[in-house]
Amino acid sequence: MAGAARGTLTMRRRREILLGAAILVFLALLPLGVGNVYLRGLIVLTLLYAGLAQAWNILGGYCGQISLGHALYFGIGAYTSTLLLTRLGVSPLFGMFAGGVLSGGAAFLVGLPCFRLSGHYYVIATLVIGMMVALLAANWDFINAAQGITIPFHQESWTDLAFRTAILPFHYVMLAYAALIWLIAWLIEGSRWGFFWRAVKDDVAAARSLGISIYPSKLAAAAISGAATGIGGVLYAHYIGFIDPDSTLDLSLSVLIALPAVVGGIGTLWGPLLGAAVLIPVQQLSVAWLGSAAGGIDLMVYGALIMALALARPEGLVSFFQGRAREEAADHG
């Protein structure tokens, strides 16, 4: 029983936070070893998706509500901060806050009708609402419709999140983002809400019998998940310097946000990070290496990878590590 005693919840959570800190240090030092600008950009994107997928995971993984409409919250964040900066000159540091609040609010509002639906009806409803807003945005002149908005560059500035060529500052911005969302997920896992959400995911009737209200639980998870996604949208907008409905609101983005969490391990702390670390580089590198030579091969590689991972590791990439940990525990036990 030594293994069991060591494997208690408290110990596990302590280990997780230590491992998280170690990974944070490693990622903070990583650019020192990577000189190539393209690779640095790739890492920035991976970090962004690690954060976004973790944000999605809060609702989809812990609370079990599979949303295919998260691009909506991403887009609201991106547009809010971009409009605030370009029209009113408001700093993205505030934009981040405003974008988070608005996208969290939007997720709450979307949840009000959608959480009355179950299973696949919920999935399709989130998808439809997302598509609807994307379509409206592409026809709304106030936000430049389908042309999109370019964020003009004036000077390097942290308050404007504007940097001429250096990707390095954004490495730390995205790292902070990914780390923050990870930390939120870690806190949720150990909190009353986190326990309630996982209960809601596993068995609604049993959750009710323990006094858990289902609907408010889902709404709370949605609001936090939406806000966290929206902040990612804000950071993306200022990183790229250009947004349009296609790149910030489209259904394909909703899928891209969810995918790393699923491939890595849905409802787990490390899954979204692992999934992003595998999927984003494969996707980007196959576009860079294969996409230009022969269009389509990059998609074939990416599609095949998704199929292979989903079939080989249906419980996610994290199960590689869990498997080993379990065996070890069994050896000691």
């Binding site: 599979i66 491939v263 849905i266 389509g296 074939m300 990416y302 599609g303 419980e315």
Partner: peptide, 19 residues
């Protein structure tokens, strides 16, 4: 999460076929 796995297997297939 069988449902989730099925969504994404078929989604991967879709990407593959389009590619």
């Amino acid at each position: 999460n069988a449902g989730m796995v099925q969504i994404f297997v078929t989604f991967g297939l879709s990407i593959f076929l389009v590619g």
